[in-house]
């Protein structure tokens, strides 16, 4: 019972471990090369589609981006399946095959399997990081929509049209008192008839994009917050207040509602992690 440790040798297993490790590395490298290839081809095309896309929601660009991210996710699934099947499969069958870890031979083979496992996990981690970088690269390829220019254009457009309307009842001139973003009743100063003013599609988009524009204007403050370690909640509050101030400036009619939302975000911050 003691001292009769049976000699155990399994060169076939060692060969399989080495071969599987090599194949796993090569496999992931091929996927990474293909990933790089796809991104290199896609980045200029994403930019060009973004610029050509006349849809205010940039949906052609959005769908193209999703189609590319879908392929990255295909590659991720492929790697996960191989890891499960080939790497974990070998670990499982290998462990079932070899002697217990407290024996000398067992200890050697367990340690071999252990380093095989760690090598494969580490390599997979590198793959995942590259995949993540590829996702970011695609997402940022087209850059941000220039909402500021679009907004400034709408301010000018409004100045041009605001005095060009007439009352549908008496024909008197109606000056639109401020920039409206939704259908709004305006009354004629001569006959007091309620007319309905319908803003242009592009003016309506200003409301739709107001928060994003405010976020673009205050992005530097959010960056300041994100760069602190540990996170400084004071900086986040500073960003949030500035962002809402900008938001209210763009769509003053929504300021009341925005402020209620701001209060809620502050409350969430207290309950949450900041």
């Amino acid at each position: 019972m003691f001292g009769f440790e049976k000699k155990y040798d399994n060169p076939e297993l060692i060969a399989t471990i080495n071969e599987t490790r090599d194949r796993w590395f090569t496999f992931l490298q091929k996927l990474e090369e293909r990933m790089t290839e796809m991104c290199a081809a896609a980045v200029p095309e994403l930019k060009s589609v973004f610029n050509q896309d006349t849809d205010p929601y940039k949906r052609a660009h959005g769908h193209m981006l999703m189609g590319l991210l879908g392929q990255l996710s295909q590659m991720r699934t492929k790697a996960n399946q191989v890891r499960e099947e080939k790497i974990n499969g070998l670990l499982f069958s290998g462990e079932a095959m070899i002697p217990g870890i407290i024996t000398k031979a067992g200890s050697k083979y367990h340690s071999l399997l252990h380093s095989f496992r760690m090598d494969c996990i580490d390599r997979h981690q590198v793959f995942e990081e590259k995949l993540h970088a590829a996702i970011e690269q695609l997402q940022q390829a087209a850059g941000e929509q220039d909402l500021e220019t679009a907004y400034q254009e709408q301010l000018l457009a409004f100045e041009k049209i605001k005095d060009s309307f007439n009352c549908r009842q008496c024909g008197g001139d109606i000056s639109i008192p401020k920039m409206f973003f939704i259908a709004t009743y305006v009354s004629c100063s001569f006959c007091h008839t309620q007319n309905t003013f319908m803003p242009s599609t592009e003016a309506q988009m200003v409301l739709h994009n107001a928060r994003s524009l405010a976020e673009q204007r205050t992005a530097h403050l959010l960056r300041n917050f994100n760069e602190t370690h540990p996170k400084d909640p004071g900086l986040y509050r500073k960003y949030l207040r500035a962002m809402f101030d900008e938001w209210n400036k763009i769509v003053p009619d929504m300021a009341n509602e925005n402020e209620k939302f701001y209060e809620r975000m502050l409350k969430d911050m207290e309950i949450g992690h900041y």
């Binding site: 939704i182 259908a183 969430d268």
Partner: peptide
């Protein structure tokens, strides 16, 4: 309702949702 009323409603219900924790 008329369009201006609907468009206000369509802005304000989502605001209520945003405010409701």
């Amino acid at each position: 309702v008329e369009l201006p009323v609907w468009q206000e409603v369509n802005l304000l219900w989502p605001e209520r949702m945003k405010q409701d924790e």
